[in-house]
Amino acid sequence: MTASAGATIEAVVDTVEIVADQVVSLVLRRTDGQPFQPWQPGAHIDVHVGDGLVRQYSLCSSPEELDHLRIGVLHVPDSRGGSKAVHALLAGTRLTISEPRNNFPLRDSRRYLFIAGGIGITPLMPMMEAADRAGREWTLIYGGRSRKTMAFAQQLEDRYGADRVRIVAEDEVGRLDLDGILGMPRAHMLVYACGPGGMLGAIEERCMGWPPGALHTERFVASSLGAGAANEPFEVELARTGTTVTVPNDKTILEAVEEVGVRVLSSCRGGLCGTCETQIISGEPEHRDAVLTEEDKEAGEVMLVCVSRAAAGCPRLVLDL
């Protein structure tokens, strides 16, 4: 794609730390010594890991400290090379990254339930810090195969206490009891979950009994065109209106379309309610909503324009708008 696709930053690996079996934590600083742009909990960065590979990693440092960014990376044996390349990085290595971007923002609420599966703990860490600072009621349930595979588990337990941080290691107590954890919805409680697809699917099914919009998830996804570069600008042709709109990387389709005066019925504007569902006439979307089923997402006939975008490598979507 073109060079206009999101500014990149030159960074250097400051420290490398093994934080659990197969998990490294990298602290990154800018080579020019400048602070990073402010970011919010849930944000990630693109890391250009070489050979044209771009991978996204959630930030697990504090948004209060902008002199560095920290990411945690699980080495996935069958991965397409991203985590392997990251695991090969040494302190002092230079690499190209993006500014922090956020597809998993923390909405303000009175209570939170955080559910992490394995390396899915990373985006939740700044969220817990923010919830704690704001004096919100919150709990973390953190599941993993065993304690030694669970990055930051001890650190979180020490910092927040075992009443707020529940470590559920499978080799000690079995898997997460999701029926028990999610069987009793609480008023004004949002659920933020990040982890493997199977776990998130099971959480989604149970949260169908919660108020609509209570659940927010982040999947480690790769669309068929490859993960990573989906924050490129792209074009949307509005078939009914007869105009074409460019969607820049910092705007949603909904925002871009509304700016040219075309109305789209929407409600939550966060991929939660399904009101803005729009027919796709051509092009491949990258779905980022929590409404469409996996079958719907596969079929690619409709998308939620408040959050979803064109898939990487798809420069143009034609929508029934």
Binding site: G183, M184, P185, E205, M208, G209, E277, L292, T293
Partner: peptide, 22 residues
């Protein structure tokens, strides 16, 4: 109310959702 409501709502939402209604 929850938790009785919760399983009933899960059953309904699983059946009536944007995909089935479309």
């Amino acid at each position: 109310d929850p938790p009785i409501h919760t399983v009933m709502r899960r059953a309904l939402t699983g059946v009536i959702n944007p995909g089935t209604v479309r």
